[in-house]
Design a protein around this nucleic acid. Structure first.
Lengths: 354, 354
DNA sequence: GGTTAGCACTCAACCATCGAGAGTGCTAAC
DNA sequence: GTTAGCACTCTCGATGGTTGAGTGCTAACC
């Protein structure tokens, strides 16, 4: 008969799974390594500590638990969290009270898109005690919705560019000659007539095409070029912006008591490329995706988990909402909250751009 | 005869000032309490350690130095930094190399106002190894510069509001009935004709005044009300936004090794009221102002100093740039850099809104 | 008078030791 | 397969001694 040591590490039997789950829940609650005695006392497992120890030894061999030192209890590994998370992901739903609370808050908010992202992030932060994240829904390829140009100084104008899926960009345009607002208005009408609905490349082509040397056409060309450039930059950026709220929550977790760990988190949050890749991954997944610890980035995100979900319209404009917290995170609450908020954001987007 | 103990604590004589200065510079460099021996060895004071000890005891009695414990060296107090900072504030100027570097960077940046603030903050962070801060110049009372309304859905439109001193606001407006873009355009022309140059209160009055019950006037009223509300909110907010860069620099300082201290800094940075008051104070001062440790807020900012300077046009629109770092900060560099950047921002504003 | 050498004193930091306690892994009995 | 029993391991906290940096005081010096 096979000795315990040689047990295959296949899918977990029910008892092992229950014990892994109990270890994780206890550890999430206390942040202390959990021993076999605590476990049988608090989780009514119906077996003796010795049996639990045997199972825990198996789980450790399988890579799901970890032993800080001989006389300490067990701590879940990233792999342990992973199987745990996958076992619960389909079951969890958000408590109706919380659902109501969120809906209520969203009902209160002003109709200004920026507020939504902040609100989404803040709500997530409040309900999960982690940091809430939200990125605006960013279209794959932007299109012109509206152009306005306002004279500011002698040879300077402010260009306001509204893009199809909502974002508004404002930049300054230098003009070669002084132009009165009345003349600008004529150019603006022209710009809107010709450029609305076009992509960056199309605008570029029109800007290039032959234009006379009178003032009007010259201004038209200057503005159109600027429009094309702004759109190209916008399209190239992987993430437009990341709203984060409740970073203070993360700072409170004991695993980040020394700020060296925190630095990595903040550094990762400022890394546009990294976030861009995440958003991309999540957008394709279509449901909540969970990144545990160093699963993606070697060391920098060690000790940190992300629970992210996409919202928006697949293939057209997608954004991401989610939470960032210590690996030792209350996953059921996090998953259900993120899923619910992303659903709500979906509703909003549908309602707006129907 | 007066014993040393009874010395009055008036303005410092030259030697005391030199010693205080040496203590501060050494402490800033090493983050370690400084003893009398180190001081005479490294700063060529021309007196014996015993004499330095006597002077340091005086400075301690005067409240400028502090003793962590009997057998430790001296550490500057907030009051000590204060007299130090005031003694150097008028002398320091930024190294020409750095001036050039900054000008070069500002020459490169895109003509989009948001970029400036980020750039200013990033530049300050890079040169001072602290966190750089910048707030947009916010007018005391905003005025309408331009209004545009773009239809988004059946009964929904996007309102783009350009205010006189530059900021652009975008919000959604719900309409009671479906309106085509062509009809909206007529309303927009009307809105611009009537509201440009007006303050929030004036817009409000016009929105209130008698309007017929046809579609056009109804839409006009709805939009005008929304405009007034956005302006009122904007005017009421003490600080529009705070761009910060290089918070990671602050995290590196040994005084923030435990994140509990960091929390206070982050919390303070998110406290709009607090920042609003600071901006207000700084705007009135007209030059660099320095807030050392808990000089303002009792405990929360303990260990943190701010070096801030206003820019913009006094009485009209002012913003603030500056740095935030540990109390143990390289003040000469910080002061000169902040002063220089604020001067540069002034030039930009003058150039733009001349 | 201010300055300085000399010296006793203080106290954090470091290190080693030790006991207590928690929790384990193994073995043997059930 | 489960469990009681037990020896074992290792962290944690307390204790105590040593070291060294730096002080404050006193008395001599200029």
């Amino acid at each position: 008969m096979a000795r315990r040591r040689d047990r295959p590490i296949g899918p977990l039997d029910a008892r092992s799974a229950a014990i892994l789950r109990a270890v994780i829940e206890e550890y999430v609650a206390t942040a202390q390594p959990v021993g076999s005695l605590t476990l049988v006392e608090r989780y009514g497992l119906g077996v003796s500590p010795a049996t639990v120890r045997n199972v825990m030894a198996d789980l450790e061999r399988a890579g799901y638990l970890h032993h800080p030192h001989t006389s300490a209890g067990r701590v879940p590994t990233d792999a342990g969290y992973r199987v745990y998370v996958e076992s619960i992901a389909d079951e969890v739903t958000l408590a109706p009270v919380d659902q109501l609370m969120i809906r209520h808050q969203f009902g209160q908010v002003e109709f200004a898109s920026e507020h939504w992202f902040r609100l989404a992030a803040a709500t997530l932060a409040a309900l999960t005690h982690a940091a809430g994240l939200a990125t605006p829904a960013k279209p794959r390829a932007s299109r012109v919705k509206r152009i306005d140009v306002v004279s500011i100084g002698e040879r300077l104008a402010s260009l306001v560019l509204v893009l199809a899926e909502g974002p508004v960009k404002q930049v300054l345009v230098g003009l070669e000659e002084g132009v009165r607002q009345a003349d600008l208005d004529a150019v603006v009408r022209d710009l809107n007539a010709r450029l609305v609905g076009l992509s960056a490349a199309q605008v570029e082509r029109i800007a290039a095409g032959p234009w006379g040397d009178e003032t009007g056409p010259r201004v038209f060309r200057a503005v159109a070029e600027r429009v094309a450039r702004v759109m190209r930059e916008f399209d190239a950026a992987s993430v437009e912006d990341v709203f984060s709220e409740g970073l203070l929550n993360v700072m409170e977790a004991p695993e980040f008591a020394q700020s060296a760990k925190l630095r990595q988190v903040f550094a990762a949050l400022q890394d546009r490329d990294y976030l861009g890749r995440l958003v991309h991954d999540v957008a394709r997944a279509g449901d909540v995706r969970i990144f545990i610890g160093a699963e993606n980035r070697s060391t920098e995100m060690h000790g940190v988990s992300l629970v992210l979900a996409p919202y928006g319209r697949p293939g057209r404009a997608v954004g991401v909402v989610g939470v960032l917290g210590p690996t030792r995170m209350a996953y059921p609450q996090a998953i259900s909250t993120v899923r619910y908020v992303s659903g709500l954001m979906n509703e909003l987007v549908d309602h707006l751009y129907a």
